[in-house]
């Protein structure tokens, strides 16, 4: 498969703060997961790939062309940024329609594209509502709609599942996997291993601005599995869920949130834990609204891997 994105000796820093350093990477079709803790350099890399930042050293090309100052490339590239940003006074429909028109679609085609993108992320019914009235998860899905509306050959997704409810998390993962299956290129970043793992086995581990490992996830899976993990869950009845979870042997500790709206579970067997959690999430009464791995957890995993 031919290379779609190529980074050569790519470095970027902000004043004295390192963004990424000496990154060499080639990405072909399919889904590539960019995994690393917050501040690892994932967003910097994706912003350079999306033409938002200029590399200090080195170069990055997409479809053989430099990205910075090359707006024509965005006919083939879609970018979903990590910031929770939007034109809050606009309606979701007006926002996506504006972007559709800026992508060169006019008249009925622009409207069709808008509706299709909004439907793909479940926002068609809410298209007339002002974005400021959207929930965090809805705004996240709207950003995804902005990236896919022109059906690009390459998608750059920066933490696309952050703040999305469990049901839509699964649907978005499916959407991303469909893109990959169609032979398109998707680079998706996350600091949550299970998210990446659910979408692809091809991962790039990035840590402290450098590529720490690259390749098939299974090669490092054993190492990661043996490290203790924390998973935070937001739900209306945390004690009930805790009771269901402690029945398994994979839970080594549980802490309840001070506000009574969640719990944090420690486990040494994350695969078994998630296998047990998913059916519980679907049960009436649990209504899980958010599942996150505290960032320091992944940081600890990386420190652990580096130590190995």
């Amino acid at each position: 498969m031919s290379t779609v994105l190529r980074a050569e000796k790519l470095s970027k820093w902000y004043g004295n703060i390192l963004g990424i350093s000496d990154i060499n990477l080639e990405v072909a079709g399919g889904i590539t997961g960019l995994l690393g803790p917050n501040g690892a350099g994932k967003s910097t890399f994706l912003k350079i790939a999306a033409g938002q930042l200029k590399p200090k050293i080195g170069r990055l090309t997409v479809f053989g062309e430099p990205v910075w100052g090359n707006p024509g490339l965005f006919r083939r590239v879609g970018f979903c940024p990590e910031h929770d940003s939007a034109y809050n006074e606009m309606s979701g429909g007006a926002f996506i329609l504006l972007l559709a028109r800026l992508h060169g679609f006019a008249g009925a085609e622009a409207t069709e594209r808008t509706d299709k993108a909004l439907a793909a992320v479940g926002l068609l019914e809410s298209r007339g509502r002002a974005i400021k009235a959207y929930s965090f998860g809805m705004r996240q899905r709207l950003r995804l709609a902005s990236a896919i509306l022109h059906e690009p050959e390459m998608l750059l997704l920066d933490e696309p599942l952050r703040g999305v409810d469990p049901l839509w998390r699964i649907r978005i993962m499916q959407l991303i996997k469909d893109y990959g299956r169609q032979g398109r290129t998707v680079i998706v970043s996350s600091h949550i291993l299970s998210e990446i793992e659910a979408m692809t086995s091809e991962i790039v581990l990035i840590h402290q601005g450098k590529i720490f490992a690259k390749g098939d996830i299974h090669s490092i899976r054993g190492l990661i599995d043996s490290h203790p993990h924390q998973v935070s869950i937001r739900c209306p009845q945390p004690r009930r869920l805790a009771g269901q979870l402690v029945a398994g042997e994979f839970v080594s500790g549980i802490e309840f949130a001070a506000d009574g709206g969640g719990l944090t579970v420690r486990t040494d067997q994350r695969d078994r834990f998630f296998s047990a959690l998913m059916p519980l999430a679907a049960q009436a009464g649990n209504e899980i609204t958010e599942i996150t791995s505290p960032d320091d957890n992944l940081q600890a995993v990386f420190d652990y891997l580096i130590g190995k």
Partner: peptide
């Protein structure tokens, strides 16, 4: 301020 510039600079339109 609103971090919305990204939407206008990731479309095939000259700045």
């Amino acid at each position: 301020d609103g971090k919305t510039l990204v939407y206008l600079t990731t479309v095939p339109v000259r700045r």
